[in-house]
Amino acid sequence: MYTLIELMQLSIYGIVLGSILTLGAIGVSMIFGILRFAHFAHGDLLTVGAYCGLGFLSLTGAPVWFALPAGMAGAAVVAVLVDQAVYRQIRRTQPVILLISSFGMGLIIRSVVQVIWGPDVYSYPGGIQRPWQIWELSIIPNHVWILLAAVVLVALLHLFLTRTRLGKAMRAMSDNMDLALVTGIPAERVIMITWIIGGALAAGAGVLLGMDSRLTPMMGWSTLLPIFAAAIVGGIGRPYGAIAGGMLIGLAMEISTLFIDPSYKLAVAFVIMVAVLIVRPHGILKGAW
């Protein structure tokens, strides 16, 4: 009985973490689907979003939830700027070099955050919350809001991808880039939208992560591996798979703490990813998008 409750408690944490990872993994997956490279600075877009949200709050004194739209806007702008200034120049000639370029870009972004905000640890205003006691489980109010926010963001993305011209064009480009070009879909515009959405979702993950714990310049980098794991487990290039991947990785990371030292959560994500790569190189879900 005791372990069952513990398991359920950890599952709640896992779902919360999973919803955060999902938002990051969707972006990684979309960028991979359209630009065909693993974006190593994606974790740092989380960081940018979280800190932009923080900056907005401290400038305006707005209620804490305004960090979400503010962070999303900030990270979307950063993502587009980075793509236009750097990735765009490189992808024309040597796509594979984008891997190392984005790795370096991640370090740059992290350092800029550190120059602006310093190496200190911040947290969003709101203080410590008293958890709700439901049956034997304790539920932190913020966790409910985090999950809700993630669900809303994913739902909005779904509507965008299935109901709008640009959203469909994004799916089309991810399906078949060559055909998209001969069809007359404006590739550069779709790529820009991809960065806006990928950056905004990453920022969503960053702000929610910041609400769950605290803000440090390394917060995004240390989340990058689980995000990649989620994207790969879900089938990289398939945003909808990222939801399943995110949940699986989030749950596995939290539940693993029953058995092993919590410092190895990250390694758990890595091991699952490697196992999936060996057994199912294309992810656990069949079908695209």
Partner: peptide, 16 residues
């Protein structure tokens, strides 16, 4: 596996 997976796997190894 393609290059990107190798890159991700090596990062994973280093961090682990």
């Amino acid at each position: 596996l393609r290059t990107d997976y190798l890159a991700i796997a090596t990062i994973g190894i280093a961090e682990t």
